[in-house]
């Protein structure tokens, strides 16, 4: 399983990188951590003529936190998120979600931008970005675009990213300290892609009722997505057992999971429902 032939370039600036990507008529691929791309090359499932290494590009590896929210540079690694003590309060859901990503060695090298560009429907980062109303900032030959995460993913391993575009940042809205949240995923083994996963958060109004509930799912269809039915079942309630069960039921109805060798659609549908039920209980108790 040796990699297919390709040329390699390691540009010093973003503009050069974009120019290189644009130079091959869609046949060039960006590589950063390489943790998603390298296995694909090893199986020769892709055979780009040029790899453009983002290693020397500056300024893309920062986590910025201010009143307007959180900005993750595309080259921020899982490990950086895990180790950033500010995020424990600035975005606890991000840290929780990232704790499920792959394994130690991959977490040292894999990047948020790479995961989003790869767009595995069972991966955490795409699901997280959709759940949290993230904005994906991309730059290409024709300039910069800011794409809502909910419009970024088109299918398994498919996104709206053009061949000459690079993700530069992921922007997240601020996270209120009092926000209630829960996140659970179920995988056959720790670190595996999820058979199903659920992230949920909501805020409480003055009467203790849930507002602005967000429910996102991974591994439950061809792209990560929110589940409006489940969100509606939470909003306006005190998130009591009745609401939790209603939301769980709505989640089961609001997903179209696939059957594959690992599980049937029926199993996954049930799983999403169970995970949301449990995640909501955790949110209430938090």
């Amino acid at each position: 399983m040796k990699l297919p032939p390709f040329e390699y370039a390691c540009p010093a600036t973003l503009d050069e990188a974009i120019a290189l990507l644009a130079s091959r008529d869609g046949d060039a691929k960006a590589i950063s951590g390489g943790q998603s791309l390298m296995p694909i090359l090893a199986f020769r499932l892709a055979s780009p003529s040029l790899l453009v290494d983002l290693k020397k590009l500056k300024g893309l590896d920062q986590i910025k936190i201010d009143a307007s929210g959180i900005t993750l540079g595309a080259k921020v690694s899982w490990r950086q998120i895990e180790d950033d003590k500010r995020l424990a309060t600035a975005h606890p859901l991000l840290q929780e979600m990232i704790s499920h990503v792959a394994h130690y060695q991959i977490r040292n090298r894999g990047t948020v931008g790479g995961s989003i560009a790869h767009a595995d429907p069972a991966a955490e980062m795409p699901g997280f970005s959709v759940t949290c109303d993230a904005k994906i900032v991309v730059k290409g030959s024709s300039g910069e675009r800011i794409i809502p995460a909910g419009e970024f993913f088109e299918g398994p391993l498919m996104t709206v990213l053009e061949a000459d575009e690079l993700i530069t940042e992921i922007r997240l809205p601020p996270w209120p300290a009092a926000r209630r949240w829960g996140m659970l995923e179920f995988a056959r083994r720790r670190g595996d892609f999820a058979m199903g996963g659920v992230a949920v958060f909501y805020d409480l109004d003055a009467q203790g009722r849930a507002v602005d509930a967000h429910v996102g799912v991974i591994g439950a269809g061809s792209i990560p997505h929110r589940v409006p039915g489940a969100e509606a079942a939470i909003n306006g309630t005190t998130v009591d057992e009745t609401a939790i069960l209603a939301a769980a039921k709505a989640a089961a109805a609001g997903v179209e999971p696939l059957t594959d060798i690992h599980a049937s659609a029926a199993y996954r549908r049930n799983l999403i429902s169970v995970l949301l039920e449990r995640a909501l209980r955790a949110a209430v108790a938090r």
Partner: peptide
């Protein structure tokens, strides 16, 4: 710690 099979030598 990293996986050396998922890293290019040139990197």
């Amino acid at each position: 710690a990293v996986r050396s099979c998922l890293t290019l030598a040139v990197q």
